[in-house]
Design a protein around this nucleic acid. Structure first.
Length: 719
DNA sequence: GTGTCCCGCCAATGG
DNA sequence: CCATTGGCGGGACAC
């Protein structure tokens, strides 16, 4: 402290000199100027002076810290972005954890020479960086969570740099998946959204805590993941308290690695992290504290260039979030091949051999550390069971415990995802379902999760933004669970409706409509996909459309009957003048540039309309509820998009046909009569209404189609 | 007003 | 008992 104070004093003096010399440069921010006798204590004056001195300190600091292996030029530090003048950079920012971390990192190479001494002495560092130890701990904790350092002894840490980063991330990702973080985030997002719209504020607390934690959440374990080599050196065996920044940091990272658009908003993250330890008191303070911590973590992750600050814009306005910008590809986790295994090792320290992850702590209330929590055992087991079923008995009915469905579904979904991951990762030996054609399983209750192994790679929509001509279809999966033909071996047997985007000029084919209606009518009998294929494709479509997740999760009677959305032709929002011509010949017209643009926009390739316009006034009474209340819209589920055409996206000149297949989730209320309850989105996505002409049973009518405004959670699993 | 997050008190822990 | 560690949250600062 003394040292610091001394330093400060010097700085102040220097700064004063500077000020005299070059006034404006060191302009403190607002308010009290140097000489002012403000109401504050001398301390505040000191602070102020310090901030005035900051620039100076910074510069000195800058020169002082460097060496580094060259890369990551520290200059790239995100000082103040563009134009910003250093003038503005003062006090607070000067001391930010992020900056401090940067300075710290600059002292060590990303990939240290193992033969050298990579010791880190906290005292030294603190002194040299001129900060309190406390702050160093913050940094060390998150670095430790990524295994970039490890505590070697009392005041000592060993520097590993990024040597083990990839491996660590791979593991974190795995574990994250194990914990169904993705699903959890989903839930929370949805919940937040629901809340926002439904009963603006109020009476949320209880409600939330209740179904948030009560719903599923099989596991609420806290653990710190270690790497085989790096683990528990010395004191690191802090067997207890785990809300530690380290654990939180790992979880935070997991969230990124697990979520699809690799963006995680603070509130969601905080909620998840909270939900894990203390279920009960979901009080506001806790949340606040969590968020504060997350900022700390985020700051160092940011200086590590693993994440970046972004904003998620939703109807409610923007909210802080972070996006993963770190590595996307991870090495296969050696030693560990199957997820359950990991789960096991995490929870069972005794299995020291493949113990790449270990539970260092016990939950707050449950003191017996190193014991697998019952719920986890259950989860792990159930997952394995599911997996087994999935792998072996394709069509065998599963689980009759309907009350457990949501839960299971989530798990199943998770499993499917994992499976998908595995399958899409080249080189991964998948022991799963060799004869990839067999559907994974079919849930009688309507919960179906199917992922054929040979499904063609899902490609994120990257439609060339240009006018083109080419079939453009969107397939939507019906939500009917009832009809889910267990008997049917192929998912294709599930009815799939299609929607054809047409050029507003390409007068629409009632013919098509007819056929589509027909199709819809018989959807339970025929494979629309097949049908579809036969018309649409001949030309290009070779891809197996059948290869997809066609699932409807949801145990209640599907409200599908009333909808017979058959085909619709989208028109430019403006020109709703709908020519109702038909041409049987081209069921699939290429969308006009305008429409295409619009579509692209809605698919998230272009920024969409302002939130305000997202929910325009209802065009027809029947949609009133839908339009006025986003809540009524189908907003969750997964949307997989893949080109129907084999044409490589990059080269394609024409818009790629895309296939949307969704997974409906339970508890969703879908508006009746819209005919679109089949389009669900993985994340609550703002939907934009698009005027379209829908022919239902022969009565063409203007309807509103909802299309996601932002980037969809396109299945990028493999891309 | 909301988002950020510095600062440092003080409780666990370690030795 | 003293030194390390590191939750935690008030409240200042930034935008």
């Amino acid at each position: 402290k003394n040292i610091m104070k001394t330093h400060v004093t010097n700085s102040v003096l220097e700064s004063v000199e500077d000020q005299l010399a070059m006034g404006p440069l060191t302009t403190p921010k607002k308010g009290r100027e140097v000489g002012s006798v403000d109401p504050w204590t001398p301390t505040s004056n000191l602070k102020m002076l310090i901030s005035a001195a900051s620039p100076d300190i910074r510069n000195r600091e800058k020169e002082l810290c460097m060496d580094n292996g060259g890369r990551e030029g520290l200059e790239s530090i995100q000082e103040t972005e563009n134009g910003e003048e250093s003038e503005k950079m003062v006090s607070r920012k000067e001391k930010s954890l992020g900056l401090l971390c940067h300075k710290f990192l600059a002292r060590y190479p990303d990939y240290p020479d193992p033969s050298r001494n990579n010791d880190i002495c906290l005292d030294d560092v603190a002194t040299e960086l001129n900060v309190e130890r406390r702050r160093i701990y913050d940094i060390m904790n998150v670095l430790e969570s990524l295994h970039m350092v490890s505590r070697s002894a009392k005041n000592r840490y060993s520097w590993h740099g990024r040597t083990k980063l990839a491996q660590t991330l791979a593991i974190l990702k795995q574990v994250g998946e194990e914990h169904r973080y993705s699903q959890q985030m989903q839930q929370i997002r949805q919940r937040l959204l629901d809340k926002e719209f439904d009963f603006d504020g109020e009476e949320k607390e209880n409600d939330e805590a209740l179904d948030l934690e009560g719903g599923d959440q099989g596991q609420k374990e806290l653990f710190f993941i270690e790497l085989p080599g790096v683990e528990f050196k010395a004191a690191s065996v802090n067997s207890r308290k785990d809300k530690s920044l380290r654990v939180m940091s790992q979880k935070f990272v997991m969230l990124f690695l697990v979520s699809n658009p690799r963006v995680v908003s603070l509130d969601v993250a905080a909620k998840i992290l909270i939900g894990e330890d203390q279920v009960a008191d979901q009080d506001k303070n806790k949340f606040k504290t969590k968020v504060r911590r997350l900022y700390d973590i985020a700051n160092v992750l940011r200086s590590l260039k693993l994440i970046e600050k972004v904003h998620v814009t939703e109807e409610r306005g923007r909210k802080p979030a972070f996006e993963w910008v770190g590595p996307e590809e991870f090495p296969q986790i050696k030693g560990i091949t199957r997820s359950p295994l990991i789960t096991k090792s995490i929870l069972t320290p005794s299995a020291s051999v493949d113990n790449c992850a270990k539970n260092l702590f016990s939950s707050p209330r449950d003191k017996r550390s190193f014991t697998r929590h019952p719920s986890l055992i259950k989860l792990a087991k159930s997952i394995q069971d599911d997996r087994r079923k999935i792998n072996s008995a394709p069509n065998s009915p599963v689980r009759s415990d309907s009350s457990d469905i949501p839960n299971k579904m989530a798990q199943l979904a998770a499993i499917c995802k994992i499976k998908l991951d595995q399958e899409s990762v080249p080189g991964v030996n998948t022991t799963v379902n060799p004869n990839s054609h067999t559907p994974l399983t079919a849930q009688p209750a309507g919960s179906v999760a199917y992922i054929p192994a040979q499904c063609s790679p899902l490609i994120p929509i990257l439609l060339p933004h240009q006018q083109g001509s080419g079939p453009y279809a969107v397939y939507l999966q019906p939500s009917s669970l009832r009809r889910n033909p267990l008997a049917r071996p192929q998912p294709t047997s599930l009815a799939v409706r299609s929607m054809t985007f047409e050029d507003k000029t390409g007068q629409s084919p009632t013919g098509q409509t007819a056929s589509m209606s027909q199709l819809a009518a018989r959807e339970s009998d025929i494979s629309p996909l097949a049908l579809k294929r036969q018309r649409l494709d001949s030309a290009s479509e070779k891809k197996r459309l059948d290869s997809f997740i066609l699932s409807s999760i949801g145990s209640r009677p599907a409200p599908v009957q009333e909808i017979t959305p058959t085909s619709l032709r989208l028109h430019r929002p403006a020109s709703s003048a709908s020519p109702r011509t038909t041409q049987h010949a081209h069921q699939l017209h290429s969308p006009s540039p305008a429409i295409l643009n619009f579509t692209l926009q809605n698919l998230g390739l272009i920024s969409g309309p302002s939130p305000g316009s997202a929910f325009a006034a209802p065009q027809t009474p029947e949609h009133a509820n839908v339009l006025s209340s986003p809540l009524a819209l189908p907003q969750r589920g997964m949307v997989f998009i893949k080109p129907v055409s084999p044409v490589p996206v990059q080269q394609s000149v024409s818009p790629q046909p895309v296939t949307l297949i969704s997974v409906q989730q339970p508890l969703m209320t879908t508006p009746k009569g819209t005919g679109f309850q089949h389009s669900f989105f993985h994340t609550p996505v703002p939907l934009s209404p698009l005027t379209a002409v829908v022919t239902t049973g022969g009565q063409p009518a203007a309807k509103t189609v909802y299309i996601p405004q932002r980037k969809l959670d396109v299945a990028t699993e493999d891309s």
